[in-house]
Amino acid sequence: MGIKSIGSHLQVKGVRKQFGNVEVLKRLDLEIKPGEFVSIVGRSGCGKSTLLRLLAGLDVPTEGEVLLDEERVRGIHPDTRILFQDARLLPWKSVIANVQIGARNGDKARAEEALRLVGLEHKAKEWPSVLSGGQRQRIALARALAGSPRLLLLDEPLSALDALTRIEMQELIERIWQEQQFSAILVTHDVSEAVALADRIVLIKNGAIAIDIPVHLPRPRERNSDFAYYEKLILDHLMERGAPASVLAVSP
C-alpha cells in the first residue's frame, strides 16, 4: 500500500489521570518503539481505556506527558488512528464514503486501496446497515488504514465479534501490521488475543503497570504449548493467583 510509513515512537512519562476525586492512572511510564506491537491488558475499570484515550489525544493527562516522536501530544495527531470497540460507521454514508473519512483529503483511490486490503472492495457501494458485525469492523479497520497511520490504537476492537471472526480479524490485523510497519497498541481483556498479536504485553492493575513481558513467539503464532504458557502466565497475574516470580525470568 502506497508509501510505507515507519511507526511512531511513543513515550509516556509520569502520566497521572484523575476524574474528580478518583485517580484512574497513577504515575505511569511506558515506551513503545517504532513498529512495535504492544498489548495493554487489564480487568475492566483498571484504567486501560483511559490510557488509550490519553495516547490518542482524546483526553489530557492530569499530570505528566505523552510524547509522540519526542513531541508532546496535544489533541489528535494526524498520524494516529483509532479502531474502536464498535465499528462506528456513519450510517448515512456508503461503505466507500466511510473509508474516505479516514483518507487524507478524502482521497478515493486511497480508500479503495484500504478496502482491498481488508478484502471488502466488493462492498464499496453498500450501506453499513446491511453488513455483518465482522464486516463492519473490517470497514472500520480500512478507514483507519486509509490514513496511513504511524500509530494504530486498538480499543478492544474484536470483543463484540464471534470467536471465528475474531481469529480471522486477528490474522488480518497481524498481516497488515507486518506489511505497513506502524506502531500498534491493543487494549484488551482477552489474554489469548494479546498473546496472539503482541510483541510485548503490559498488564495494568489499579492504574499502574503490574508487569511488562516480551512475548518471544514466532509469527504467525500457533496456539501450541508455548502460546498456552504465556496465556497462563498473564492470566495468573490478572486473576492474582500469585505466579512465582521466578517464572517471569524464564522464557520458553
Binding site: L58, I76, P78, R81, R88, I101, G147
Partner: peptide, 23 residues
C-alpha cells in the same frame, strides 16, 4: 461516539457540521 470518529480524523467546524451533525 460518531462525533469522536470525526474528531479523530481531523473534522472540525463546517466540515464536522456538514458530514456529521447535519446528516
Amino acid at each position: 461516539r460518531l462525533l469522536e470518529v470525526g474528531w479523530v480524523h481531523g473534522y472540525q467546524g463546517w466540515r464536522l457540521i456538514r458530514h456529521f451533525f447535519l446528516p
